[in-house]
Amino acid sequence: MAIQTETQDSPLTIAGKTFHNRFLLGTGKFRSKTELTESITASGAQIVTVALRRIDLERHEENIIEHIPKGVTLLVNTSGARNAKEALRIARLAKASGCGNWIKIEVINDSKYLLPDNYGTIKATEMLVAEGFIVMPYMYPDLYVARELVKAGAATVMPLGSLIGSHQGLKAKEFIKILINEIDVPIVVDAGIGRPSQAAEAMEMGADAVLVNTAVAAAGNPAQIAQAFSLATAAGRLAYLSKLPAIKSHANSSSPLTGFLFEE
């Protein structure tokens, strides 16, 4: 289902490719391939993330690519990489498959919180950009690091909202706002978005897109919640474009600061 909006919004543009849906879907943790396909279709997601794993030699499982509708852009994540070198190796494997060269860099050397290693991410971004990959780095919202990522050639910057799978929403809200203000490439809020309202919140404050995985895959009705997420993302975007009025402070009758300007 594609979200039709009549607004004057320019499309999301990443590496020269345009997308009208700002909701990105992760494909991990789905109970069945059918639920995955239905979720992609119901939400109209145009970019989905996938991972690379050793094939299961006993089970001969079907490749997930078969279940992703044609025309959807694949974003291969480097999950499993604990440093930049490993991320590069995974990226090269992905490229060899012929399934495009869009890579979501995940350099995580932390099995407790799954927090991204910002510095490994910068290194990985430099290495992958040098080899011609379209790089979308997943990172912890730090302005210096975001600037380095842009300098290194990242196509977007993907700050986490909160810990992966935590459904805590935008714990890092104020710091994501700083990135939105200061960084000129698209900001895709990734990780921790647990409810459609949180996706809307991210978009209302000016994020360019959101990526959700666990909240959809683990839901009772993934396709339905995926649709809700997509609608919420579009609603948040529309609200942002409408420029909500600022919250005004109350005026009072005396004018101690500027009264002198109006005295005769």
């Binding site: 005004k248 402070s249 005026a251 004018s255 600061l257 500027t258 009264g259 300007l261 109006f262």
Partner: peptide, 10 residues
């Protein structure tokens, strides 16, 4: 004047 004062207060 009230609007100017509001601006000034901020």
């Amino acid at each position: 004047p009230e609007e100017v004062e509001r601006l000034a207060r901020e």
